[in-house]
Structure formats: C-alpha cells, structure tokens
Simulated assay, not measured.
Amino acid sequence: MELEIFDDDLDAEGMMKILVIGGVNNGKTSIISKACYNNMESEKTINTIGVGFHTKKIQMDSKQIRMCFWDFSGQDRFLCLTRCYFNEANAAIVVTDASRPNSLELALNWKRELDNNFEYKIPTFLFANKYDLIKDEPTYTEQQLNQITRDNGFDKWAYTSAKDGHGIEDAIEELVRQTMKESYHHVRRLRHASMRDSFKLSSGSPIMPPTVLLGAGGGGHGVASEKCQLPKEKKRCCS
C-alpha cells in the first residue's frame, strides 16, 4: 500500500519517534531525505553533526501519523550526546552500508548501544543500504540476513537504496504498522495492569514502552542542540 502524504498544515492524530542510527557514511540522512522529501541522494552528503530532526505526515489505516525521524551522527565523539535523545523512542532503524561488509559490525554495535539504553524492546529494523551498488552481486544472502536479524534482536531487515528509493517506503510502512500494533497492545497491557492495581505493588510500576503520542502538531526539520533539548517549536513532538 502506498503511503499518502499530508501537507504540514494538517494536524496529525499520532506522533511516532523513530531513531535512525548506524556508522558514518552509511546513508542514514539520505534515507530520511528520500522518505521525507523524496530527494535523490547527493554524491556528497554532509555528515550529520550531533542529531538531526525531520518529520513526515502519512495516512495509515484511517489515521494521520507524523513520523519524527531522529538522525544520529555515526561518529563516536557524539555518542554521549546521542544517548540522551533515545528517551521515549517508539521505534528504531539501524543502517549498514551493504557495499562495505565491515560496516555491519559498526551497525551491530549501535544496536547493542540501543539495547543497553532501553529497559523495554522497541520495534527495530535493519536497513542494508546502498543496494543499488551491489544488486547484481548482493553482499549477503537472504539466509544470512535472516540469521543476523535473529541473532541480534532485530524485528526485520530490508535492502534499501537512498539513490533510487528501493525498499525504503515499504520498510518504513512496515515499521510504522508494527509500532502502531505494539503501541495498541501496550495500552491494553496498561489498562489490564491498572485493573489489577499493579501500580501499587511495592516492586514498582512495570516498565513499558511509550505509546504513540496523540494530539500534537508541529513539523519540519532541524538539528537538536547539544544540551539534550529540542528547539522550542519541536519539543512537543517527540521528546
């Protein structure tokens, strides 16, 4: 199903914070640019410094959802900065460069960093990007990627290309669907726990992932500051 895109002046019913992480020069920003603005990948994309921020409204299952992509620099020197922006994320995309097999280990390091900073599981997809460079001779077989996905706690994987758009729309749609589904089940679990008065137990409240936020507006793109706070107009979106 093709995603229906909305203008920025329309309010979205739900907000979804999606982390986009991985090593340097894997194409994270180019993937977001293709998804949000349908821009072709530049031959010389400027590396993200710190954290970039981009949004896109879509229509899915009669609901308007604003996807909020948090584009993290792959440089190690920004790792301490990026950790504080992981809070309240709904989903994550880990990007590796399919044309450089050694970049996979860096992507898996980011996945471990993600897991270490969450006490609950969020839907996480592996994007093997730059498929246009290796489509005639794929770096990994489907069996290998299935095994990597299982061994490292990813929900799914996809070959993607920011240059020609291969796989990006379908993979993001699937990620949004899965996130909405898990958010729905999360709400049901909370209601069930409330009925059992579980929040009053001495052991404390159960740790649950955040639900997709409802009723907030805003949009556009920018760069988050180094003080772990969004620009004023962005703060209500996903923080």
Rank of each mutant, 00 (worst) to 15 (best):
Leu3Ser: 09
Asp8Ser: 12
Asp9His: 15
Leu10Cys: 13
Gly14Asp: 09
Met16Leu: 15
Leu19Ala: 03
Leu19Lys: 03
Leu19Gly: 15
Val20Ala: 02
Gly22Met: 04
Asn25Asp: 09
Asn25Pro: 03
Asn26His: 02
Ala35Asn: 05
Ala35Arg: 00
Tyr37Thr: 05
Asn38Asp: 02
Asn39Ala: 11
Ser42His: 09
Glu43Lys: 07
Phe53Ile: 03
His54Ala: 11
Gln64Ile: 14
Met67Trp: 12
Phe69Ile: 12
Trp70Lys: 05
Phe72Tyr: 15
Ser73Arg: 13
Thr82Gln: 11
Asn87Pro: 05
Ala91His: 08
Ala92Leu: 15
Val95Leu: 06
Thr96Arg: 10
Asp97Met: 03
Arg100Gly: 03
Pro101Asp: 02
Ala107Trp: 10
Leu108His: 13
Asn109Gly: 10
Glu113Thr: 00
Asn116Gly: 06
Asn117Ile: 02
Lys121Leu: 07
Phe125Asn: 01
Phe125Ile: 05
Asn129Ile: 02
Lys130Val: 08
Tyr131Cys: 10
Asp132Met: 05
Leu133Glu: 14
Ile134Gln: 11
Asp136Lys: 14
Tyr140Glu: 00
Gln144Phe: 06
Gln147Ala: 08
Arg150Phe: 15
Asn152Met: 04
Gly153Arg: 04
Phe154Tyr: 08
Lys156Arg: 12
Trp157Ile: 00
Ala158Gln: 06
Thr160Asn: 02
Ser161Lys: 00
Lys163Tyr: 06
Gly165Ala: 04
His166Glu: 07
Asp170Ser: 03
Asp170Ile: 00
Ala171Gln: 03
Arg177Gly: 00
Gln178Tyr: 10
Met180Thr: 02
His185Gln: 08
Arg188Val: 00
Arg189Ala: 08
Leu190Arg: 10
Leu190Asn: 06
Met195Phe: 12
Gly204Asn: 10
Pro210Leu: 11
Leu213Arg: 15
Gly215Ser: 06
Gly217Ser: 14
Gly222Asn: 07
Ser225Glu: 01
Pro231Lys: 01
Lys232Pro: 03
Lys234Met: 15
Lys234Thr: 11
Cys238Arg: 13
